[in-house]
Amino acid sequence: MTTHDVPRSTLRTADLVPTGSLGLRSRKMRALLSGLGIAIGIASIVSVLGVTRSSQSALLAQLDQLGTNLLTVANGTSGQGAEQILPTTATSMIRELPHVQSVAPTAKLASVNVYRNDHIAAGRTGGRSVRAADAALLGTLDGSLLAGRFISNDDSPVTVLGYSAATTLGITDVSGNDRVWVGGHWYNVVGILKPFTLAPEIDQAAIVSFQSAEHLLGYNGHPSRIYVRSDTEYTAGVAGLLGSAANPEDPSRVAVSRPSDALTAQLQVKQSGAGLILGLGAIALLVGAIGIANVMVIAVLERRTEIGLRRALGATRGHVAAQFLTESLILATLGGIAGIAIGAGVTLGMSVYRGWTTLIPPEALYGGLLVSIAAGAIAGLYPALRAAHLPPTDALRTA
């Protein structure tokens, strides 16, 4: 028989998975621990991308709902954080500006507090304040009532409580029969507001009308904070004119802000935080790949006899290398699939808890799987080549 008549050793593609998974099936705990590093890295990447995308979507939806065209005008604050008064002409001057949709002046009554009853010791305010306003406030802030009605432009001793103020005071009845003690006078509670994302100071306030504040609480006619709703495309231009309109004598003292900028800043913080955690996920993935490489090197040393026997029976170096490389790929792929499942589960749980819409970028799913496969290929390359170049006589001699 000539050398051409000797049958060539072959390894079918269909045999790669059973052959490559032999070591994993015989050492299940080692395989589980080895794949855990890949799973943790992929889970970190998928969950960070998913949670970030879901939270960003919620913030963007909130921005769309609340609008970015709300501006606030104030005259700075004192050293104690109290709002300073604006000129009495500020509101009317701002209303004359072009592209202004609505204006809602308010005045924080610095020396007036709200209590549950007249037996509460002075100073125990719980962080609550009293703020004079008019009926335009609700529409300008695009807010709504949780219960009851809003104040009218008259001197009736009634109040509408912000959400936090109502909660701390323990007020739920808005029929007008429940009262609070405001600046030495009883005020009937006629409404409770829903939370204001863009105006948290309203949440802590008891809102009374300007007429009532002037008649009973010593209000002097000066606003301290004005809310302005502008045409969206002209918001920046309107903001540039508010200082001189509110206080022509000293525009530099006027502080103009856009409350929606806080939500935009949250988006930027989430993006920067996501980048940091993605870096940690990449480190975990690297550690997992190193763990697989280490396990595969040990497997080559432990299975020298098997390698030598296969080579002696006709297996080529390529067959041996393919077996160990397949084992590494299977291990990394299973770890990647587990990581994707864990990451998706974390994203879903966080979204349900926060009330977000669950959004997982498709690239996080297929990208995570591709990255895990690539990590497995890189991790298994050296052990596979080492196994392939192991001389069969030396391998059998160590048996």
Results as ranks from 00 to 15, higher is better:
304 R>N: 10
355 G>W: 11
238 V>Q: 01
371 V>K: 04
15 D>V: 06
228 V>C: 10
392 P>I: 01
252 S>C: 05
189 V>L: 09
265 A>P: 01
29 M>S: 11
200 P>N: 10
315 A>V: 04
105 P>Q: 11
309 L>N: 01
130 V>D: 01
212 S>M: 08
129 S>L: 05
80 Q>Y: 15
86 L>I: 03
40 I>C: 04
328 S>K: 08
257 S>D: 11
205 A>L: 02
182 V>D: 03
214 E>K: 09
392 P>G: 04
98 P>A: 11
365 L>D: 03
264 T>A: 13
141 L>I: 05
371 V>I: 13
151 I>Y: 01
208 V>E: 06
175 S>R: 09
191 G>D: 02
396 L>A: 00
63 L>W: 09
126 G>Y: 05
166 A>V: 08
20 G>V: 07
329 L>M: 12
324 F>N: 02
150 F>G: 05
240 G>H: 09
51 V>Q: 13
318 G>V: 00
295 V>F: 05
201 E>C: 01
388 A>S: 04
136 A>S: 15
135 A>T: 10
11 L>E: 05
382 Y>W: 13
55 S>E: 08
57 S>I: 01
80 Q>L: 14
282 A>K: 06
90 A>Q: 07
308 G>L: 00
120 I>H: 14
221 G>D: 09
286 L>N: 10
64 D>N: 15
305 T>R: 14
364 A>S: 11
67 G>E: 00
99 H>P: 11
37 G>W: 12
389 H>T: 09
186 W>V: 02
50 G>F: 10
266 Q>I: 05
53 R>P: 09
